Computed example of a mutant assay.
Amino acid sequence: MKLRLHFVVDPMGWLCISMVFGIWLYNTFFIPKLVLLPHYNEGHIPWAIVVCYYIASGLCLAALFRASTADPGRLPVDPKIPHSEREHWELCNKCNLMRPKRSHHCSRCGHCVRKMDHHCPWINNCVGEDNHWLFLQLCFYTQVLSLFTLVLDFCQYYYFQPLTGLDQEKFTTHHELALMRVSTLMGLMMFGGMSSLFYTQMAGILSDTTTIEKMAQFSNEVYGSKKSWQWALTEVCGTRWKLLWLIPLRNRQPIQASHHFRTHV
């Protein structure tokens, strides 16, 4: 199925996402150059470690691309409102268009987004009903890649055997300590920040409360009964297949409620 692209024209957002991409590029280039490939070539680490690192890096980049370019749930100018759902719609006082309840007008993007959680400058996009699962994936894979990087930085000095085939004339060899320190610092910052963000996002999903609603001190009881964690994540990810919750290169499809998933476990 074709993936629709959605771009936000915001120079500040482009700067923020460029910084995130730069951090990803730094660790994806220098860590294999300094640690993975040299130790693999000398037989200190198995090929599976190298493959797993590149898989984590690829999934992190895919989640970043999809979260920043996926439509978060932008409402059309002339929405078709089913007669049975009209009582669940309201008029936006900023763009004067009808929207479902729990939608929010983003002043940065200039339109309303269904079940908007927040506008994230680091992906230059809103986080809403249609791309919340991608933002969750981005947080998760960034944690995995950052932790992987920190472990490799630690092993480089305290576990791996010394390399025998170093070329002392290469830039990376001359500046290895500085490059590794920068990598460790970025790894700590990304892992700490994404862990906190991932926790708050998961807490909001499980309580069926968006970040905007929390700031406005809304209660999830206004919008219905509590849900089991399986059904909450199923609604966000758009599939009952748990393995697909981790795959960024697919489309999300709204699903209907199921008694089995709505029951608390």
Rank of each mutant, 00 (worst) to 15 (best):
F148D: 04
G204E: 04
L64S: 13
G204M: 09
P11T: 09
H88P: 00
L15A: 15
S196C: 10
L188P: 02
S219Q: 05
Y54H: 15
E129K: 12
T172Y: 12
G224L: 05
S225G: 12
R86S: 03
G192H: 05
H118R: 12
F29R: 09
T234Y: 01
G192A: 07
P32L: 10
P32A: 04
K115P: 01
S225D: 11
T263Y: 02
Y141C: 04
I31S: 10
C92V: 04
Y53T: 07
G73A: 10
T164M: 13
A62S: 13
R114H: 06
V113M: 07
R240L: 10
R4P: 03
T209S: 10
V265S: 12
Y53S: 06
W231I: 01
F154D: 01
I49T: 10
S68E: 01
Q230E: 09
S68H: 03
S207M: 04
M189T: 13
F7H: 15
F148H: 09
L233Q: 03
H105T: 07
P248K: 07
Q137F: 00
S225I: 00
I23M: 09
I247E: 01
T142P: 01
F140G: 03
Q168D: 11
Y157R: 15
H132S: 06
N93G: 02
R262S: 10
I17G: 00
D78F: 10
R181E: 03
S107A: 14
C155I: 00
M116T: 04
S196G: 12
S228A: 05
L134T: 00
